[in-house]
Amino acid sequence: MTTVQSTAAETTATDEETVLVHHERGVAVITLNRPQVLNAVTRSMAVAYAAALREADADPDVRAIVVTGAGRGFCAGADLGVLRQGADAIRDFIPATEDLPDLALRLRKPVIAAINGPVAGIGFAYMLGSDIRYASRTASISTSFARLGLVAEYGTSWLLPRVIGTQHALDLLLSGRTIDAGEAARIGLVHQVTEPEELLARAVDHAADLAAHCSPASLAAIKSQVWGDLERPRAEALDHTLALMNASFGGDDLAEALAARAEKRTPGFAPLPPR
């Protein structure tokens, strides 16, 4: 079994270990685990990955999520065995609506991608669906769709322009070219580039900092605000924000944060309720 090195005391696996999960410091680290094929995705693996995300979101002990790949790749896309079987097999590969890559956007908890190697196809959609992205200096990223005679899949044509702007999005989607981590950082596709040996630790440290110091209710609300406001008119977004502000002023988390600051201690925010 390939595992991710960490200080985790608990590791579980699903779908014949094609998806691994371990927990540390309030963080669920989910690892795509078919390293021999750069973590290329089968249909059952897509289902298992979605299940791991939902389980982490439902677990009160988990406050942030990190997604990465085993071995030298993040996710090279759909398994070539599926693509070679023809149109019907490819249609059957598409996950159910609730398991599509945008699931990460619908979670209450922040999702951080640790991009350790090649990314393409559905792997690009998984990466793009995360809230924050770290990349190894050796990572390579491609949409790949146009070079396979396909369209911009899994909602990437909606999300990518919102992340990096229309010009950069059109360049990546129309060309299907491969970019390196440096270019990904320059166009805003990744948050930070690290040395390969530092990647997972940096991503987990970021997630653990959120877990230790930020209100889970605030994280859930802010994530929902940011993604939701992309579709709301400005006036509606402002009204929504004011309503949320009013509710937060009387919340337990504000009182706890102020008490913790006065007492010079780490706040003890309540976890999100299980789903």
Rank of each mutant, 00 (worst) to 15 (best):
A152M: 10
A146Y: 06
A208R: 06
A185G: 07
S142I: 03
D205Q: 03
A139K: 03
T166A: 14
D131L: 03
A211C: 11
R137C: 06
W158L: 15
G149N: 08
L200A: 01
L148G: 14
L174E: 11
A184M: 02
A203I: 04
P161R: 11
S142K: 08
I141L: 08
A211N: 08
L170E: 14
S215V: 00
L173T: 02
F124H: 07
G149L: 04
A185L: 14
S136K: 07
E183G: 01
A220M: 02
A125E: 08
F145Y: 10
A125G: 05
D205G: 01
E183D: 02
R162F: 09
V204I: 04
S144P: 00
E183V: 03
T138Q: 13
T156M: 12
P216T: 01
T143Q: 06
R162E: 15
G182M: 07
S140A: 12
F145S: 07
S144T: 10
A152S: 15
T156N: 11
A146W: 05
A201L: 10
A135K: 04
V226I: 14
Y126L: 09
L189K: 02
G188W: 04
S130V: 02
S157C: 13
A125M: 05
A220L: 01
L219H: 01
V226D: 10
P196N: 15
V226M: 12
V151F: 14
G121Q: 00
H206C: 06
I132K: 07
R147G: 08
I179T: 08
Q225C: 11
D205R: 02
D180E: 09
R202M: 05
I222D: 04
H191L: 04
I132D: 04
Q192P: 02
Q225K: 09
F145Q: 04
L199R: 02
S142H: 09
S224K: 12
A125F: 05
I179M: 09
Y126P: 04
Q192C: 10
P161I: 05
L219C: 06
T138E: 15
A139Y: 04
A169L: 06
A220P: 01
R137N: 09
I164G: 13
W227N: 12
A211S: 13
Q225A: 15
L210P: 00
I141W: 00
V226C: 10
R133T: 08
I179C: 10
T178G: 00
V119L: 08
A120L: 00
A125C: 08
D131A: 07
V204Y: 00
L199P: 01
D171R: 09
R177C: 06
S175A: 07
V151H: 15
T138N: 14
L170M: 15
A139E: 05
S175N: 07
V151I: 13
T194F: 07
L148A: 13
E197S: 10
C214E: 01
